[in-house]
């Protein structure tokens, strides 16, 4: 098997995650989909690391995880406060940009 298959898998997971972001309305699920996309990226980075034979790809994946953790913390806090004020976790309910 060619290790490039990992990249194909990563892109497939990324596309699935992107689609999920677009079709789901529950903010938490949307967030999960974003995590899925980030994980797909991480997989690609790890595969790149193996491809190039050095650890830089893994380092970036590591940073991605840290940033993702930070993002989850803030994002979930936003969702919680949104739910508190609107009693809904649907992203469509926050459509104040509409004319």
């Amino acid at each position: 098997m060619n290790p490039v298959n990992y990249l194909y898998l990563a892109s497939l997971l990324f596309a699935i995650g992107a689609t999920g972001v677009l079709i789901r309305r529950n903010a938490i699920v949307v967030f999960m989909c974003i995590e899925l996309m980030l994980n797909a990226c991480n997989l690609a980075l790890v595969a790149f690391s193996r491809m190039h034979g050095n650890l830089d790809g893994q380092i970036i994946a590591f940073f991605t995880m840290v940033v993702a953790a930070a993002e989850v913390v803030v994002g979930l806090a936003i969702i919680v406060s949104l739910f508190r004020s609107r009693h809904s976790a649907s992203v469509d309910d926050a459509s104040l940009m509409k004319l």
Binding site: L22, S95, M97
Partner: peptide, 17 residues
């Protein structure tokens, strides 16, 4: 054209993707 600006973040995300 306004219908495109429906205020739903998901719609905008589609256009981004």
């Amino acid at each position: 054209l306004r219908k495109l600006q429906n205020g739903y973040a998901r719609s905008y995300a589609v256009s981004m993707l």
